[in-house]
Design a protein around this nucleic acid. Structure first.
Length: 822
RNA sequence: GGGCGGAUAGCUCAGCUGGUUAGAGCACCUCGUUUACACCGAGGGGGUCGGGGGUUCGAAUCCCUCUCCGCCCA
């Protein structure tokens, strides 16, 4: 029974308890139905979830529910991305420790504890929103299965020659002291000084009096200067090429070389090359086979090469050496400029380039193939595919996957101490959690040595999260009890990580299977706050906490908000949407309570009465709504679908149909029995239809209605397992709809008259005459009784007026009924 | 500088394979408690669809251009 007012607090909990107890959302491993699998993004366990998570995850959840109601076997797992740097940094912050300053085992244990705690919190939020995930399929990227599959993925790539180890200048973060990948960079505008420095030219044995001027933002790197470059077409090129210059304050003479990468417009058109100030330096170092003079160490401090500035951090060294350059007269000028620098997204620190040995996955050699794969995938909205393509085409580096960190998936690899030959773990050893648990008994096949050194680096988080389809499919596992086939059906994710998560996943899938990882990608937008600002943790401008949202507005209203956007578009947070969602739930609750009073003891299967035109018309409208909503949901446009459904429910079912059938419903006389039965059947059908349509959006309130009014007769345990309603129009749809339209036109005319004349809708009218256009005049009679009921008219006269448009109605006269005697 | 979006009512957004007087919700104004619902109902005001060109019988919709905003890259 539906009793009292709509109360999401009790109703949400009851629905969720039912789903849990009945296992409603279990993936059915024995089913032969078509599988719809979703590669859910495992949220990063890095502190707190914000409303952006609720926004995008709910959008995918809506699709899961829709597909399930279409009869598909929905594989909808949940995962958590808890390995890697984000968890390390959270743990370091919470415990006031530094991973590199404590024993590795102890730090890893702390990380595990931290991630387990947050995981619990995360799961509680998703459950409170009514997510229809199969919680038995949950994974975490640091659990044994994920590690095993991640390592299997690495070994597969290694065996296929898709992974290599290489010492080269690598993107390096000096705060976390690890290599990072291109995708983890952000560019930031910084105010800095461009310094004009005098470099004296040397000829023969010494300075000959001539000099050149070089502009640099990084004078601290003078100690690492290895060459000077000039554009071959620079006016001074002919005279300077082949000469040498003395680096100010350093005991270094470097050659002046030509390269067309020098921008002749920038600075003086002559630049120094240091190892390494930026990416161009790296390119020149490799192309011109320059010396290596490493000025900055792994910890961001200057090396001994810096002389007096050794051990200072780069920015301190910059100040110090500028003082010395001023004193020595080498600093000729300074200008404040805005300079775009690359920083590591996790720390905000400027990236350095350090020559270190790292593991790389080959991507540059397969750009064309990756573009092609991207075109095989259906991107929703389509323009997101262009972003992927744009990223792939702009790649400059292979994918560096090794990190000099602690809490991550170990490389299942050892090196021969004698010859650095690589030993890879056999399959039976996976997961390799601790290298010391395994003993290599064979001698090195290359040098015969017997001493092996484990690889202590760990894999970057993305190296594992790029394997989520494989983790879901339980790729390579001995007995896959609930695996889904690959490629999966759909990947939901936000647009900012197309360049990372989507891209890396496609790379891995290509390497492992030569195929796409999923057929569809559903790309959601971001939540913004007033003024189209990005929500960011650092600004602390999140309008609300997701848990508060659910608590204050209910799960369904929260979902309603998230499902009000169009796919891929950023959406400004608005509390109005939450209120509107709540209103919809209240409306559905109240309409259902009305239905409940009239459907007591009603047996749908025993109905013999023929439907009246309005009953057929509302069924027709329902079918049309189903058709439209399905088309939108098929293309992942949940927001449009929701609008269509809402319009049907509120604007047609509540505002007109319920009003029109009220008299019939309340009429318990024997003469009215048949008309009443037809009305009850109509009410039953359209309400049952509309709660099913709304279930992907507001599953809790629709579940309450289903359990109270439909479960006994329909049989299915949950509305979430009920079949999606049919889009097939009933017999006589066209005539009925014409009659309905005529009736609504008359009804609207009477309502307008009441409003203009300030006559309460409740006051009965004894007689109303309207003039009507041809169409209305022809059809109105068929629905006259129901219109009279809704409009509270005793006698209705419709006269055709050829001067009116066919669908128009003009009220001619209306008479108030005598007020009842006091 | 390049790529991709966006700019429509006070606010948040639909509409954009060109075609009746450009829509919705909220907000605002007027009226009204009928036995599902005042978290309601009825009615109403409010927009030269960012600016400027062009194509067309006809443009919010297509083309060009400019301005501003967001994301990604350089």
């Amino acid at each position: 029974m539906l009793e009292g007012k709509y109360n999401p607090e009790t109703l949400d909990a009851a629905a969720q308890a039912l789903w849990e107890a009945e296992g409603v959302h279990r993936y059915d491993r024995d089913s032969t139905a078509e599988i719809y699998s979703i590669d859910t993004p495992p949220p990063t366990v890095s502190g707190s979830q914000h409303i952006g998570h609720v926004f995008s995850y709910t959008q995918a959840e809506c699709i899961a529910r829709y597909q399930r109601m279409l009869g598909k076997n929905v594989f909808y797992p949940f995962g958590f991305d808890d390995n890697g740097l984000p968890t390390e940094r959270l743990t370091e912050k919470e415990h006031g420790v530094l991973g590199r300053e404590m024993p590795r085992e102890a730090f890893v244990a702390l990380c595990r504890e931290t991630s387990a705690r947050y995981k619990k919190e995360f799961e509680a939020l998703w459950r409170s929103l009514g997510f229809s995930s199969d919680w038995s399929l949950v994974y975490s990227t640091i659990d044994e299965r994920a590690i095993r599959i991640s390592q299997r993925g690495f070994l597969d790539a290694y065996a296929k020659d898709q992974v290599y180890q290489h010492t080269s200048p690598t993107l390096w973060d000096t705060e976390t002291q690890t290599a990072v990948a291109q995708a983890e960079l952000e560019s930031k505008d910084k105010r800095t000084k461009m310094n004009d420095l005098r470099f004296d030219l040397v000829a023969g044995g010494g300075v000959d009096g001539g000099h050149i001027v070089i502009a640099t933002t990084r004078p601290e790197l003078l100690c690492a200067c290895v060459a000077i470059f000039i554009h071959p077409k620079h006016p001074q090129a002919a005279e300077l090429l082949g000469q040498k210059a003395k680096v100010p304050l350093q005991d270094i003479e470097v050659e002046i070389l030509a390269d067309d990468k020098v921008d002749p417009e920038k600075g003086t058109g002559i630049v120094m090359c240091c190892t390494f100030g930026d990416k161009t330096d790296v390119e020149w170092y490799q192309k011109h086979r320059l010396d290596l003079r490493q000025g900055i160490g792994r910890d961001g401090r200057m090396t001994d090469l810096a002389g007096p500035e050794a051990n200072l951090f780069a920015n301190q060294a910059r100040r110090a050496i500028l003082e010395r350059l001023t004193e020595s007269g080498h600093l000729l000028g300074q200008e404040e400029i805005a300079n775009a620098v690359n920083v590591f997204e996790k720390t905000g620190r400027e990236i350095e380039f350090l020559p270190t040995k790292q593991w790389f996955i080959k991507v540059l050699d397969k750009k064309a193939k990756l573009v092609e794969l991207g075109e095989k995938i259906r991107w929703h909205p389509t323009h997101m595919g262009k972003r992927y393509r744009n990223w792939v085409e702009g790649l400059d580096w292979d994918w560096c996957i090794s990190r000099q960190r602690f809490f991550g998936v170990p490389f299942p690899v050892w090196f021969c101490e004698g010859c650095e030959h690589v030993f890879t773990a056999p399959e039976a050893w996976l997961p390799v959690l601790d290298h010391s648990n395994h003993e290599i008994t064979d001698p090195c096949p290359s040098c015969g040595g017997t001493s092996w050194r484990p690889e202590n680096d760990v894999m970057d988080t993305w190296a594992t999260s790029s394997e989520t389809p494989e983790i879901n499919a339980q790729w390579g596992e001995p007995t896959p009890p609930d695996a889904c086939p690959l490629p999966m059906t759909m990947r939901p994710q936000a647009h900012d990580i197309i360049r990372t998560w989507a891209f890396y996943t496609i790379v891995k899938s290509w390497i492992h299977f030569g195929d796409i990882p999923w057929a569809d990608v559903m790309v959601s937008g971001h939540v913004q706050v007033g003024g189209r600002k990005k929500i960011s943790k650092s600004k602390g401008n999140a309008p609300t906490d997701p848990n508060d949202m659910v608590r204050d507005h209910g799960a369904d209203a929260t979902r309603y908000w998230a499902l009000s956007a169009t796919l891929g578009n950023d959406y400004v947070y608005s509390e109005d949407d939450l209120k509107q969602g709540r209103r919809l739930c209240v409306k559905l609750w109240n309409a259902s309570k009305l239905a409940q009073t009239h459907l007591q003891g009603f047996d749908r299967s025993a109905v013999t009465a023929a439907p009246l035109p309005v009953d057929t018309a509302i069924r027709t409208s329902l079918a049309d709504t189903v058709r439209k909503a399905s088309l939108d949901l098929d293309r992942y446009e949940f927001g449009i679908a929701k609008g269509v459904i809402e319009q049907f429910f509120w604007g047609e079912l509540c505002d007109n149909y319920l009003e029109m059938i009220k008299n019939r419903l309340y009429d318990e006389s024997p003469e009215g029995a048949e008309a009443r039965e037809a009305a009850r059947a109509g009410l039953y059908d359209v309400l049952y239809g509309v709660i099913r349509l709304l279930t992907p959006f507001t599953p809790h309130v629709t579940e309450a209605v289903y359990q109270a009014l439909f479960r006994a007769s329909e049989g299915t345990t949950s509305v979430g397992k009920a079949p999606w309603p049919s889009a097939e129009a009933p017999e006589g749809a066209n005539e009925a709809t014409a009659a309905w339209d005529a009736g609504v036109s008359v009804l609207t005319a009477v309502r307008r008259w009441r409003s203009e004349e300030k006559v309460s809708p409740g006051k009965p009218l004894s007689r109303v005459e309207v003039r009507a256009g041809a169409d209305v005049a022809a059809s109105a009679a068929a629905v006259a009784e129901d219109v009279k009921a809704a409009a509270r008219i005793a006698e209705l006269v419709v006269t055709e007026d050829e001067s009116l448009d066919p669908g128009a109605v003009a009220l001619q006269s209306a008479e108030l009924a005598e007020p009842p005697a006091a």
